[in-house]
Simulated assay, not measured.
Amino acid sequence: MSEDLRQLISRYPGAQTFKFGDNATLSAELLNLVRAGKKTATCGALRDYPEGSADTPVVGRRDIALDWDDRPALVIETVEVSICRYCDVTEDFALAEGENETLEGWREDHRRYFERNGGFDPEMELLCERFRLVEDLAERIDVQ
């Protein structure tokens, strides 16, 4: 663990670390969307969050998003967590993810993502999270 990350964890007790996306290019794109204020939500397959997992988002907790090279990039605060089937995701939530202009585009991109990462089923349950940006570590600007 880097000294920067140790210091961040001491500033944000209980923070978990995570990466957006499943490859370097997607991760960088998603971090930039958060920085631009376009991405305020994310989701993952519920199967990837076993009961009691420390990785499960918690309302009010601040977590540290890493870039693909494991450097701290952002601090976010979870403001809402819900479980929703893929087929029931609303346009409002899909657009809050900031990656697509339409619900249909979100469905196509996320179907491909889940196919690459453990399998896809239109009725699969997703862990849906809304968050706010607390700190952009690239700029060292605190937006609290």
Rank of each mutant, 00 (worst) to 15 (best):
S2Y: 09
E3G: 01
L5G: 05
R6F: 07
Q7L: 15
S10V: 12
Y12I: 00
P13V: 08
P13K: 15
G14W: 01
Q16N: 10
T17P: 08
K19D: 03
F20G: 02
F20N: 06
F20P: 00
G21N: 06
D22I: 02
L26G: 08
S27T: 15
S27Y: 07
L31Q: 06
L31W: 12
L33K: 15
K38H: 14
K39A: 07
T42K: 07
G44Q: 10
R47T: 13
D48G: 07
P50N: 15
E51D: 15
G52L: 14
G52Q: 15
A54C: 00
D55W: 11
D55G: 15
D55S: 13
D55E: 10
P57K: 11
V58T: 05
G60T: 03
D63A: 01
D63L: 06
D63H: 10
I64R: 00
A65Q: 06
D67T: 01
D67G: 01
D69V: 00
D69N: 14
R71D: 03
P72Y: 04
L74K: 08
E77D: 09
E77F: 04
T78E: 08
V81M: 00
V81D: 05
S82K: 06
C84I: 06
C84S: 14
R85P: 13
Y86Q: 04
D88Q: 09
V89E: 02
T90R: 09
T90K: 02
T90Y: 05
E91N: 08
D92F: 00
D92Q: 06
F93I: 00
F93L: 01
A94L: 04
A94W: 03
L95N: 09
E97K: 14
E97R: 11
E99H: 12
E99D: 10
N100M: 09
E101N: 06
T102A: 09
T102S: 14
L103T: 05
E104F: 08
E104C: 06
E104L: 14
R107E: 14
D109I: 13
D109E: 08
R111T: 12
R112E: 13
R112M: 13
F114C: 11
R116L: 10
R116I: 02
R116N: 13
R116T: 08
N117T: 09
F120N: 00
F120D: 00
D121G: 05
E123Y: 12
M124P: 15
M124C: 11
M124T: 07
L127F: 02
C128P: 11
E129G: 03
F131C: 00
R132H: 08
R132I: 04
L133D: 05
V134K: 12
V134D: 03
D136T: 14
D136N: 14
L137N: 02
E139T: 05
I141Y: 03
I141W: 01
D142Y: 10
D142M: 13
D142F: 03
D142A: 13
V143C: 09
